[in-house]
């Protein structure tokens, strides 16, 4: 049996918001260590890897591994009904047909209970080995979201170029070009505002702007985002959770 209680429903709301536009159906795999999701978008260009660790829950128990096949659009309709500050409890039997979603208001004696029908989902699982990356950038997630939104207005592609001194985000479209250059710096008072660039080898990669626009929907999960890049390889974009992470793996574009 699964019984997981969050101190606030806001974390699950943000997680669903962050992934629902990339994948529609996915299995939530529940183990004694927490909840994991691995799902690929329909075009197989973007992969989501989520870990909500046991410590993200106020109370958590999962005696046996349980798979919850969830339609995220339906789940989102229910999860939106709770207030962000409500306790959120997920309950499922060992071989469940549905999952119970319970919101409890902390001040009033109000308990809202919903049941979501589960689906039997076949899903491809991609084996991602630990990769060596040539460059790692950690920056404020809101800044990365703004750069993505701004440059996406010019072109379908977004180029990320990393040199020893800086990282350049660049787009080249029909009516014009744009780029944003960031240098590494340390903000002692607000560490999350810092920009860290670690580079072993220079990088020049091009990505589909619409996929990066989907990735930045994870912005509300974390103050900072870490971008890991390797030549001619998928990039990793990571938002850390209090215990766990939301990672996006994005295949690059290559010149013919």
């Amino acid at each position: 049996m699964l019984e997981g209680k969050f101190e606030e429903s806001s974390l699950m709301k943000k997680v669903v918001d962050a992934i629902k536009d990339s994948v529609k159906l996915c299995n939530f795999n529940c183990t004694e260590h927490g909840v994991t999701v691995q799902a690929v978008d329909d075009s197989r260009v973007l992969l989501i890897s989520l870990l909500i660790g046991e410590a993200s829950f106020e109370e958590y128990r999962c005696d046996r591994n349980i798979t919850l096949g969830i339609d995220l659009e339906s789940f989102n309709k229910i999860i939106k009904n709770g207030n962000s500050s409500d306790f959120l409890t997920l309950i499922a039997e060992d071989s469940p047909d549905n999952v119970l979603i319970i919101f409890e208001d902390k001040k009033k004696d109000r308990v809202s209970e919903y049941s979501l029908k589960l689906m039997d989902l076949d899903s491809d699982f991609l084996q991602i080995d630990d990769m060596e990356f040539d460059a790692t950038i950690t920056m404020p997630s809101s800044e990365f979201a703004k750069i993505t939104r701004d440059l996406k207005t010019l072109s379908e592609s977004l180029q990320i170029i990393v040199t020893k001194e800086n990282v350049k985000f660049s787009s080249d479209g029909d009516f014009g070009t744009g780029n944003v250059v960031l240098k590494g710096f340390v903000d002692m008072d607000k560490p999350d505002e810092s920009i860290k660039i670690d580079m072993a080898r220079p990088i020049n990669l091009t990505f589909g702007a619409k996929y990066i626009a989907d990735i930045v929907k994870g912005t509300s999960l974390s103050e900072s985002v870490t971008i890991k890049l390797a030549d001619k390889s998928p990039a990793l974009f990571e938002y850390k959770l209090p215990s766990g992470f939301l990672r996006f793996y994005l295949a690059p574009k290559f010149d013919e």
Partner: peptide, 14 residues
């Protein structure tokens, strides 16, 4: 125009 790659070109499906 650059061509979009598929993740399965990099990772194995299991």
């Amino acid at each position: 125009t650059p061509i979009q790659n598929d993740l399965t070109e990099f990772y194995n499906i299991i």
